[in-house]
Simulated assay, not measured.
Amino acid sequence: MKLKLAAALLAAGLPLASMAFAQGTGPADAAVIDTCLKTAEETGGFGGACVGLVADPCIKAAEGTNDDVAKWRACAARELAIWTQKTNEALKKVEAGGFADVIKAVKDSQKTFAASRDRFCVVFDKIEPGMYKGDASYCRLRETANRSLSLIKLGAAVNEH
Score class of each variant (00 low, 15 high):
Gly47Gln: 03
Ser150Asn: 13
Val102Asp: 05
Leu37Gly: 03
Leu16His: 05
Cys121Pro: 08
Glu160Arg: 13
Ala28Ser: 10
Phe21Trp: 09
Ala76Lys: 02
Gln110Met: 10
Ala156His: 10
Thr35Met: 09
Gly134Thr: 03
Asp101Arg: 11
Asp118Leu: 00
Pro15Asp: 12
Ser109Ala: 13
Pro129Lys: 03
Lys86Gly: 00
Thr35Val: 10
Ile82Glu: 05
Cys58Leu: 06
Phe99Thr: 15
His161Tyr: 14
Gln23Tyr: 04
Gly52Cys: 02
Gly98His: 03
Ser18Trp: 02
Gly44Glu: 08
Thr84His: 04
Gly26Phe: 09
Gly24Asp: 08
Thr65Cys: 05
Asp101Met: 07
Tyr138Asp: 13
Lys71Pro: 00
Leu3Trp: 10
Ser18Pro: 01
Ala90Gln: 00
Lys107Ser: 12
Tyr138Trp: 12
Gly130Ser: 11
Gly47Ala: 01
Glu128Arg: 12
Asp68Met: 11
Ile33His: 09
Glu143Phe: 05
Ala17Pro: 03
Ala156Phe: 05
Val69Thr: 07
Thr87Tyr: 00
Asp108Cys: 08
Ile59Ser: 10
Ala74Tyr: 01
Ala6Asp: 13
Cys50His: 01
Lys4His: 14
Pro27Gly: 15
Gln23Asn: 07
Thr87Lys: 02
Ser18Ala: 12
Gly26Ala: 10
Met1Gln: 13
Gly155Pro: 00
Lys71Glu: 00
Met19Cys: 09
Tyr132Met: 07
Arg78Glu: 09
Ser18Gly: 15
Ala22Lys: 00
Asp118Trp: 01
Ala136Met: 11
Thr25Arg: 14
Val32Pro: 02
Ala156Val: 08
Asp118Ile: 01
Ala61Trp: 01
Ala114Phe: 09
Leu16Gln: 06
Val94Arg: 03
Trp83Tyr: 06
Lys104Ser: 13
Thr35Asp: 14
Val94Met: 05
Glu128Ile: 13
Arg117Asp: 09
Ala81Ser: 11
Glu143Ile: 06
Ala22Gln: 02
Ala30Ser: 15
Ser116Phe: 09
Arg117Cys: 04
Ala12Glu: 12
Val122Pro: 10
His161Phe: 14
Val51Asn: 00
Thr112Trp: 10
Glu95Arg: 12
Glu160Val: 12
Asp68Tyr: 07
Leu149Ile: 00
Ala157Ile: 12
Gly52Trp: 02
Arg119Thr: 10
Ala8Arg: 02
Ala17Gln: 11
Lys107Leu: 11
Arg117Ile: 05
Lys60Glu: 15
Phe120Tyr: 15
Lys104Ala: 14
Cys121Val: 08
Phe46Asn: 08
Val54Pro: 05
Ala49Asp: 11
Ala31Cys: 14
Asp125Ala: 08
Asp34Met: 09
Lys38Ala: 15
Cys58Glu: 02
Leu5Ala: 03
Lys86Tyr: 04
Arg140Phe: 12
Ala100Glu: 15
Leu16Trp: 03
Leu37Arg: 03
Glu42His: 13
Leu141Ala: 00
Ile152Cys: 02
Ala28Trp: 01
Asp101Gly: 07
Lys104Leu: 12
Glu89Thr: 08
Pro57Ser: 08
Lys107Pro: 08
Asp135Arg: 15
Ala114Tyr: 10
Ala81His: 05
Leu149Phe: 00
Pro15Tyr: 06
Phe21Ala: 04
Pro15His: 05
Ala70Ser: 12
Ala114Gly: 05
Lys107Met: 10
Cys58Val: 06
Phe99Asp: 15
Phe46Pro: 01
Ala11Ile: 07
Ala105Glu: 14
Ala90Leu: 01
Phe99Met: 14
Ala40Asn: 04
Glu143Leu: 10
Val32Glu: 11
